[in-house]
Write a protein that binds this DNA or RNA. Structure first.
Length: 677
DNA sequence: CGACGGGACGC
DNA sequence: CGACGGGACGC
């Protein structure tokens, strides 16, 4: 498939290509009451800006922009297609202002966001109009997203295998929630540049993906793990009078219109699950802060979110950082279906319970929990897959499971086409998981859809073991380091930061995610958090100030992983508090108090090492894995040559290997580009 | 190590 | 009220 236009990628986790979701054609009225927008937390009531807005209140509409429309197309060619997903209020074909020539795009107006959503999901990149060269692009018109309060969280993904398709990428990312869109960057020849963008509609999904993949997951055929971070704001297409909301930078969209309730708490449970992690590849040191020891933000190291120079347009985005939603109860529990998988050895045959055989969203959920159906969306998935179950349970198990853990929303075309999960290519099994369960190879933390249960089982158990081992050794290391630290600085004060944050994260984690929303406001890092912990120890503030390579200040939240240009109130308040407390010895360790006291510096360094160790256990723990070639059926299948998937190392690239050539080309192109006048 | 898709409102 | 052009990212 790959060839053409970014290739028929299906944006959404559930592959419905030919079978449209539920009733393909809805009378517009029913649409309202029926389907809700795929938004994970709608159940909780009003907090999500995504929801509620258009719900039923009339007067609104949702306009879509449609690209790749053949210039020859007429409304009659287009309308029916969109009518399949809702009542089309209007079709506006765009013509050149001057010449009157069709521009190859149009606008479609629906009455509701639900219809629009459905159309996007069903059509984007999936339908080619007669006479068209590639599939149409269907997305919200400029400004619509903002207007409708539909947020999206876009991740930049680097170090992709250049052979990977949109779909491959989607599979990797689907584990954390429904992937709204994947865009791979390609050169003129349509070759992947090895990076791209992945969108979620939910922040927690994005965070989960970052947590689980960034610096950790290495695609097959790659020697580097993925880079996964929030995308920089899109480079503004110059000129185009910018009326609309720019891309949400950093932590994601500002938040639609105003967020009603204070979404107290920032990123819930992440952070600790794996222990703090240090992205292996902390941002290329370019400025003093990053080279020096002065950047203690352990987990972040600025890695995901540092603004890039050249993207100064960002401040256009007002307040991102609001947490539109909260607490998605990530991987709280292992689903019963998953449990069997933990069994290390007894690898069940690939039949029987195949947890990943969703047929539709709702069925998926029902199948798992036997419970009522929830909206289309899959909340999160999780870590149960990406992490050793034990960890998940240990750290998050206490969370009230507010909704059925739906794992494997990796449900994709593959799963659909192959609901039984039985007909997996035999080569998959031996391939990714060697026989012994005890190996040090970490199996892929996230095997995409095609995994058979047995594979999952093995993966999980292996991961578990490995991680446990590394966890233990890390703990030892930690103790040692701790001792060293204490010797170095008897003041003991130095540990407070770290411990504090640990404590607070625990608190965070322990917090019932789904409770009624207000009680969660305990953290100081939430935008509107109460901030006051009466007298005692200074409340912790997760925000710290940093300076971008461009010399601009920005602020980073260790816990939520957000960054923003504006100074967060919490930090301001926090600093005030500090001052009032008149604790001379204590200074904000994380701010730019260069040069940091030696002790701090050392501590940071040690911690960093430790973190790195935890997160990046010795080489053998790295598992190069990749969502292998697709199982039977589908377009892809016709290309038997790809049976082994791309990028397999063994296959030595021939001298005239296109990929190689391509690389050379790229370099040249890059240079040319960079040096262009 | 890679950063945003062709086109963008004709009302 | 006020409104051009043409080209546009500065890494």
């Amino acid at each position: 498939m790959g060839g053409a236009t970014g290739g028929g990628f299906r944006p959404v986790g559930g592959g419905f290509e030919r079978n449209y979701p539920s009733p393909p054609v809805h009378p517009p009225q029913q649409v309202h009451s029926g389907q809700k927008r795929a938004f994970p937390f709608s159940g909780r009531g009003g907090n999500s800006p995504n929801r509620d807005r258009l719900g039923s209140s009339g007067g609104n509409f949702a306009k879509l922009f449609v690209g790749s429309v053949p210039r020859t197309a007429t409304e009659d060619d287009i309308r029916p297609l969109f009518e399949e997903h809702g009542h089309v209020i209007e079709v506006a074909l765009i013509k050149d202002k001057k010449t009157g020539q069709p521009q190859g795009c149009c606008f479609i107006k629906y009455a509701t966001l639900e219809e629009a959503d459905r159309a996007i999901r069903a059509l984007h990149n999936q339908h080619t109009l007669p006479g068209g060269v590639g599939p149409i692009q269907v997305r919200y018109a400029d400004g619509e997203r903002e207007r409708l309060g539909a947020v999206e969280y876009k991740l930049f993904v680097g170090s992709l295998n250049k052979q990977a398709t949109e779909r491959d990428v989607q599979e990797i990312f689907s584990q954390f929630g429904r992937v709204e869109d994947v865009y791979l960057m390609r050169d003129e020849l349509k070759q992947s540049r090895g990076c791209g963008f992945v969108k979620y509609c939910d922040r927690e999904m994005a965070l989960a993906a970052i947590d689980a993949l960034n610096g950790i997951y290495t695609m097959r055929g790659c020697d580097q793990p993925l880079t996964v971070r929030f995308a920089d704001p899109k480079r503004p297409r110059s000129g185009v009078a910018d009326s609309r909301g720019g891309a949400p930078a950093f932590g994601g969209p500002g938040f639609g219109p105003r967020i009603q309730a204070p979404i107290p708490r920032p990123a819930p449970n992440f952070g600790d699950t794996m222990g703090d992690k240090v992205p292996p590849n902390p941002w290329h040191p370019m400025s003093p802060q990053n080279t020096g020891p002065s950047n203690p933000s352990i987990r972040s190291m600025g890695s995901h979110l540092l603004p890039r120079s050249g993207d100064l347009a960002m401040p256009l985005n007002p307040g991102f950082n609001q947490h539109s939603s909260q607490v998605p109860t990530v991987g709280q529990q292992i689903s019963p279906l998953q449990k069997p998988l933990q069994s290390p050895q007894g690898l069940p045959p690939p039949f029987q319970l195949h947890p990943l055989a969703p047929v539709s969203y709702s069925q998926t959920q029902a199948a798992h929990s036997g419970q009522l159906q929830v909206p289309l969306s899959n909340p999160l998935t999780p870590f149960s897959q990406a992490l050793p179950p034990q960890h998940s349970v240990g750290l998050r198990g206490q969370l009230p499971a507010s909704r059925p853990p739906v794992q494997q929303n990796t449900s994709s075309a593959a799963a659909l086409q192959n609901p039984s999960g039985v007909n997996l290519p035999p080569n998959l099994l031996p391939n990714s998981v060697p026989t012994t369960a005890n190996q040090q190879h970490l199996p892929a933390p996230m095997q995409p859809v095609q995994q058979s249960p047995s594979q999952l089982a093995q993966m999980l158990s292996q991961q578990t073991q490995t991680l446990q081992a590394s966890f233990q050794s890390s703990q030892q290391a930690f103790s040692q380091l701790q001792q060293q630290l204490q010797q170095m600085q008897p003041s003991n004060q130095s540990m407070t930061l770290h411990q504090n944050s640990q404590a607070s994260r625990q608190q965070t984690v322990g917090n019932p995610p789904t409770t009624t929303g207000t009680d969660v406001a305990s953290s100081t890092s939430g935008p509107t958090a109460p901030v006051i912990a009466p007298t005692v120890a200074p409340v912790e503030c997760h925000w710290t100030e940093h300076t971008s390579p461009d010399g601009f200040k920005y602020y980073h939240n260790i816990v939520t992983q957000e960054s923003k240009w504006e100074k967060p109130e919490e930090l301001t308040l926090f600093e005030q508090q500090k001052r009032q407390q008149q604790k001379p010895p204590m200074q904000l360790p994380q701010t730019q108090s260069y040069p940091p006291q030696a002790s701090q510096a050392q501590q940071v360094q040690l911690q960093t090492q430790l973190q790195a160790q935890i997160r990046h256990p010795p080489p053998q723990l790295q598992q190069p894995f990749f969502p292998s070639s697709y199982p039977a059926s589908g377009i892809r299948n016709q290309q038997n040559t790809q049976e082994l998937g791309y990028g397999q190392q063994p296959v030595a690239p021939s001298p005239n290997d296109p990929a190689r050539f391509q690389q050379g080309m790229q370099t040249v192109q890059d240079l040319a580009w960079k040096n262009k006048p």
